[in-house]
Computed example of a mutant assay.
Amino acid sequence: MSHAARSAPTRQRIITAVLHIIGEGGVAAVTNRRIAKEAGVSLGSVTYHFETQHDLLRESLLHFVREETRRFTELADQCQSEGIDIGGAASLAGQVADGTSFDSAHIAPFELYVEAGRDERLREAAAEAFTAYDRLAAQILTGLGVPDAERLAATTVALVMGLQLRRLATGSSADDLVDALLLLARGAAVPDRP
């Protein structure tokens, strides 16, 4: 664990450790002892800050989503203030995707979304995560002048998540993501035909 991570508040260190563990070994690898060791905290600190493993998984998922949403909202705001066209937005998405290494912290959310399919107690956190992504996608689509951005937001998020999962599984580049976003945005910008 880096010096900066060691000096973070205990609760944050635990969450960071959980995301790292999940990314390396899946949800099944999360144990209080392993968390304590990875976070550099006492075993009692883990149970003090998180009463159950469900609480720990939920907070870890929400933390990741909040950080990603903050990062992408900053990009969306930058695009709005500087002005960007559909091609530029798709290119930016590709650059962001290419710049997102699939380290343990970025693999962990996929694991947590799958776990939410098995554990209904995590579904509320997963739904909150996707709502945040949908809001962000709608903001970007609206900024691009795409009609009916709210309706297309979930489709856009699903497309991005699916292509990111494909990249994770195959090691492919972000080129497919750029092409798919261009196809979706250009299709959405075309007025309905009778």
Rank of each mutant, 00 (worst) to 15 (best):
H3P: 04
A4S: 15
I14G: 08
V18M: 09
L19R: 15
E24T: 13
T31R: 07
R33N: 07
A39E: 07
T52I: 00
Q53N: 07
D55M: 03
L56D: 04
S60A: 15
S60F: 04
L61W: 01
V65D: 07
E67H: 04
R70E: 14
F72Y: 14
E74T: 13
E74Q: 14
A76N: 10
D85R: 03
L92Q: 08
G94R: 06
D98Y: 02
T100A: 09
S101G: 11
F102A: 01
S104E: 15
A105G: 00
F110T: 03
R118L: 05
E124K: 11
A126G: 02
A127L: 10
F130G: 03
L136H: 15
A137Q: 14
A138S: 15
I140N: 05
I140K: 10
L141W: 10
T142Y: 03
G145D: 03
G145F: 02
G145K: 05
L152R: 14
L152S: 08
L159W: 08
G162E: 12
G162L: 10
Q164T: 01
L165Q: 15
R167Y: 01
T170H: 07
S172H: 03
S173K: 09
D176M: 12
V178S: 05
V178G: 11
A180E: 09
L184E: 12
G187D: 00
A188P: 08
A189C: 15
P191M: 06
P191Q: 05
